[in-house]
Design a protein around this nucleic acid. Structure first.
Length: 143
DNA sequence: TAGGCCATCTGGTCCT
DNA sequence: AGGACCAGATGGCCTA
């Protein structure tokens, strides 16, 4: 693990201004700060693990350089929208795989994914309303 | 060398 | 009170 910066609390060095607290209180505060720093490091490591897992399932053009966090999120968004469009388009047409797709859809009910799916009842029960539009690579995309 | 990306620290806020 | 989460600040590493 890289240690980018040594904090006053982690290094144990003194602050420039004198501390009026008692040594006991100062020690308690220092211990709490160090514990909070450790928790924050662990939390960010968990977040980075999640980003790595996301990178593995998201398309990556060119394996030379790994996607940044921002790029990973944008790519995941585009990927989900693209897959969603494929599913909805295929559903709309009676293709040879329609029956198979319907079976798969039985496991993907909108009520299970309220954050991703939104249907406008006023526009008909099957009308998918994009929850948002977004930009990627400078292009405005309406999902 | 400048700019992008990242890890870490830190203080504030909210929640249990 | 203490933990989780967040955003700002800071500084290191890497690449064009």
């Amino acid at each position: 693990m890289k240690s980018r910066r040594q904090s006053c609390t982690d290094s144990g060095s003194e602050s420039s201004e004198p501390d009026s607290r008692t040594p006991e209180k100062y020690e308690t505060a220092t211990r709490r700060r160090m514990a909070a720093n450790a928790r924050e490091r662990k939390r960010m490591q968990g977040l980075n693990t999640a980003f790595d897992r996301l990178r593995k399932v998201v398309p990556q053009w060119g394996q030379d350089k790994k996607l940044s966090k921002y790029e990973t999120l944008q790519m995941a968004l585009s990927y989900i929208m693209a897959l969603n469009r494929i599913l909805t388009d295929t559903r709309r047409h009676n293709g040879p795989h329609r029956q198979w797709l319907d079976l798969q859809f039985d496991h993907v009910q909108p009520e299970n994914y309220p954050c991703l799916m939104r249907y406008d009842s006023s526009a008909g029960e099957d009308t998918y309303v994009p929850p948002f539009s977004y930009q990627f690579d400078g292009h405005q995309v309406h999902a």
